[in-house]
Amino acid sequence: MTALDTYSQTEHPEASHTQAVAELIQADSLSLHYGKTIAFSEVSLGLGAGEITAIVGPSGCGKSSFLMCLNRLTDLVPEAEVTGRLSWGNWDLLHPKLDTTRLRRRVGMILQKPNPFPLSIWKNLAFPLAEHGIKQRAEQQQRIELALQEVGLWDEVKDRLRSSALQLSGGQQQRLCLARALVLQPEVLLMDEPCSALDPISSRRVEELVLGMRGRYTVAIVTHNLAQAKRLADQTAVFWTETAGGKLIELGATTQIFEAPQHPLTQDYVRGLQG
């Protein structure tokens, strides 16, 4: 019996909530290859519990790939190979026998382009709940209402829960996706440029929601928008493309990154000279 198995047996998913928030997600010398292509290499980075971490950098430096390691979406890519260490408390996230269903329930993800399922608004939230064993209508209803209220969508959609989610506006769709992640009551949220496909007003709303999550969720947000990172993040990680794929060139408190950057590339980048 491995330590992992013991861990999963003793710990009830619900009970883990408070405990896990106190823990850190820590990557050590994490690298990702797609066949011979290197996405990023040797990244060491900790996501502080209840903190918002912004990941910034030019396109193609492995920011999104890094997020995909955290909820093991890399498993979907046949040639992807992750090396190094990635742990969440005493949970080894790279363990080959890891229960990814359980991991992904605790780690929600929002993608750049809103991707609500082509189902009704209600079903978009009820379907993931049912898949994770929450099939009682009363509990579903309570959780769905809560999640929709949390993203400020409840009042807008409560009268048309059974109409198609695809009929919502882009901003509403993105907030629905956020609610879809929240309805599973995750502890961590990964956001891959969640505002870049939205208009400024919708973008601002999502940003406010993210800000409201500080302290309650551990958030990692990839963004191209430096001002956004500055507004939101407790700590900021700067990725950069080098000859052999992406690298983490600087990591620090957001104020430090923007006011006293150490790395010359970061200095140019935050001044808007590069990237």
């Binding site: 209803q141 009268d159 829960l161 059974r162």
Partner: peptide
């Protein structure tokens, strides 16, 4: 109830 008609559907 909005969910009733969902079920019917």
């Amino acid at each position: 109830h909005p969910f009733q008609s969902l079920f019917l559907n």
